[in-house]
Design a protein around this nucleic acid. Structure first.
Lengths: 107, 107
DNA sequence: CTAACGTACAACCACATGGTTGTAGATACG
DNA sequence: CGTATCTACAACCATGTGGTTGTACGTTAG
């Protein structure tokens, strides 16, 4: 079962896609503008954009014959929060261990 | 060129691996303890652990004949910070746009 | 010592991924 | 209008991924 989180992390697991994301977060760009920036075919870039789109990290809006790709910062926030949750679990565990150590010291 | 960030995100792009990570962050577990928790072969779980290890999200330490897997919270922090950077880029952009709009209003 | 356990790793398979080229449909420009 | 541009998508290929089974080896228990 491929969940949403899978798609987001998978989308981010490629340097080209991360670069595309940082570009379109700064300011929207058409697919062909993006394509010109990388040493690969238009179709390849188009596929990368599609992966980012499936993960809801970017969205596309028509402007004439162009398709403008824009960054969706909300999805990024969600992932970041998810990682913070993992960190929180670890923090709690560390606190628990520390508490046990202190109890031992008092005994 | 596969960079370190690729490996980390790829490691996190699988529900089983994220689950393993959350388990071993709570407390270290042997590979076979982990293997018993999932409906797949020992070898499959072993591979998942290897992927997490390559991404430096977990580490292994011998304890007798067992191999204890432990979560490496530092790597998580690095990824979280990386995502925060993307968010920061967007925040700056939003601030820039707002400034422009205010300038227009004054004119 | 022998048997059981925990691990490592190779070989194999089905399927996904990242790339290519080619074709075709909209839309804008001269 | 015709033509160039931007996009979409299918077909194809090499390689990677997630799973399997089987074998081998070190370590512990009896």
């Amino acid at each position: 079962m491929v969940v949403d989180t899978d798609r987001v992390f998978h989308a981010l697991a490629d340097a080209t896609r991360r670069d595309i994301l940082s570009r379109v977060i700064r300011s929207g760009q058409s697919v062909s503008e993006l394509a010109r920036a990388y040493p690969m075919s238009f179709a390849a870039v188009q596929k990368h954009v599609a992966v980012l789109e499936q993960a809801a990290l970017v969205s596309k809006t028509r402007r004439g014959r162009e398709q403008i790709v824009t960054g969706e910062v909300e999805a990024l926030r969600r992932v970041s929060l998810l990682l913070d949750e993992y960190e929180e679990i670890w923090r709690q565990r560390a606190a628990r261990i520390e508490r046990i150590l202190q109890e031992d010291e008092q005994a």
